[in-house]
Amino acid sequence: MKRLLLVGAGHANAQVLRSLADAPLPDVEVTVVTPNVLAPYSGMVPGWLSGAYDFSEICVDFGPLAAAAGATLVVGELRELAPDQHRATLANGVTLDYDVLSLNVGSTLNPPDLPGKLVLSLRPLGRLRQSWETLLAEIRNSPADSSFTVTAVGGGAAGVEALLGCLARLRALQPNRKIRGTLATRGKALLPGLAPGAVRAAHKTLANAGVTVLLDTEFNETIADTSDLILWATGAQAHDWQRNSGLALSDQGFIRIDEQLRSVSHPNVYAVGDCAEWDKPLPKAGVYAVRMGPFLVRNLRAALGDGSSEAYKPQRNFLVLLATGDHRAIASRGGWSAHGALLGRPLWHWKDHIDRKFLNRFVFSASPKVAPHSQTERILEGQQ
């Protein structure tokens, strides 16, 4: 009996479970570890922040998905990895042994500690729900006769989309309140990598939303003092456990992988998405985890004795549909862009269709079940 351990409820590991639901592997014991059974799909998070979706609409439910795949679901968080011993230790002390490991845990952020300030970190996504819902409750109960300033720190897509979404939601909650927006980035331009036309459209959208854009600006005390809510959306950071994992890492602490998505130091460990780093680093964007998914599926199956592996080759350009918080979107691919009063809403509906179609692949109605094996018994004992 071989043991496959999936750590993280990311877009690629979801595709692995979907594959196992369609075509189970005999004599393979599958365990999936996630801190949250409901795993938000990153592409729909801005729409949820703006109020366009309920939280349940943007999530993959890993309970029925794991059950359909015949996998044991463990609600927990990785604390320590011992790749030479083929063992993972969770925060609750449970240890899990594996023959093949797939890491799809995303990245994190370490915002500054600012006493008295509301700081909302946009990573990890699993913790964002509670923070945002707590904030909304506080806003509902706060006086509407004072101004309120929301500042996003970070000039990438996450910062732009989150700021526009938050402003839309807060203004809908308190339409008579003066709610301002600021975006600060140390970069010299917004949205690096997007088409020039899309960047211009984003600047116009931000201006129309009353947002002051501060380029080439480090976050500082003045910005903090003049902000009531700070959205922390700077560059992705590696989880602490990665730095002590024994895996080969990049200078930033991300797991170095080869063309088969394997750790360059431990070939029975696979890593995809934000937690991994290619020889030529890829942007930390959810689209790469989605695109890596089919290759991860094939290569994990090959590692477990089913078929042959395949090299992943990142595509040079990909479509970006930037949500603007008002049921509109800006499109960008390579040097091409689409936007404007006539196209904004159709682009949003296109984005909504693509995102829902992706999520619908993982919808199952079965309840989670526990397979009768010794490792499962240890898991349950650790959770009691």
Rank of each mutant, 00 (worst) to 15 (best):
A9E: 12
L347P: 15
R127G: 15
L194R: 00
S250K: 10
R140A: 04
K204D: 13
L4R: 09
V75K: 11
A202I: 13
L321A: 12
P35K: 04
S56T: 11
R298W: 11
G93I: 01
S147F: 02
A195R: 07
P24N: 05
R298P: 11
G10C: 05
A23M: 15
D251T: 12
R301S: 07
N13T: 14
G63Y: 15
A329N: 12
L114N: 05
E377G: 04
L17E: 09
V272R: 00
I179G: 06
G293Y: 05
L300F: 14
A88L: 15
G47E: 09
A224S: 06
A172L: 02
R177M: 13
T89M: 10
Q383L: 03
L247M: 13
G43Q: 00
A311C: 11
L65S: 04
V100R: 13
K188F: 02
I255D: 02
V370P: 00
I255S: 05
S374L: 13
A39G: 12
E57N: 05
H349C: 06
G106N: 02
A88S: 15
N176R: 14
Q130M: 07
E161Y: 01
V153K: 10
L109W: 11
G246I: 05
I379G: 00
V370I: 14
S19P: 07
V363P: 01
A207S: 13
D84W: 08
E218R: 14
L118P: 02
A14E: 14
K351D: 07
P267S: 09
S337Q: 06
P175V: 03
H353P: 02
A224H: 05
A202F: 06
G181W: 01
G340K: 14
D145N: 13
N176Y: 07
N208Q: 15
F62C: 05
C166Q: 07
P283A: 04
V7R: 01
G235C: 04
E133W: 07
T222L: 07
V100S: 10
L101W: 12
I139K: 13
D274K: 08
L282N: 12
T72N: 15
Q375N: 09
S42H: 00
G293T: 06
R140L: 10
D27K: 10
G187H: 08
L231Q: 13
R177E: 11
N208I: 02
Q315K: 08
D22G: 03
P24D: 02
L167M: 12
P64Y: 10
V100Y: 01
S121R: 05
L347Q: 08
S227I: 03
A184L: 03
R169T: 10
V153M: 10
T108K: 12
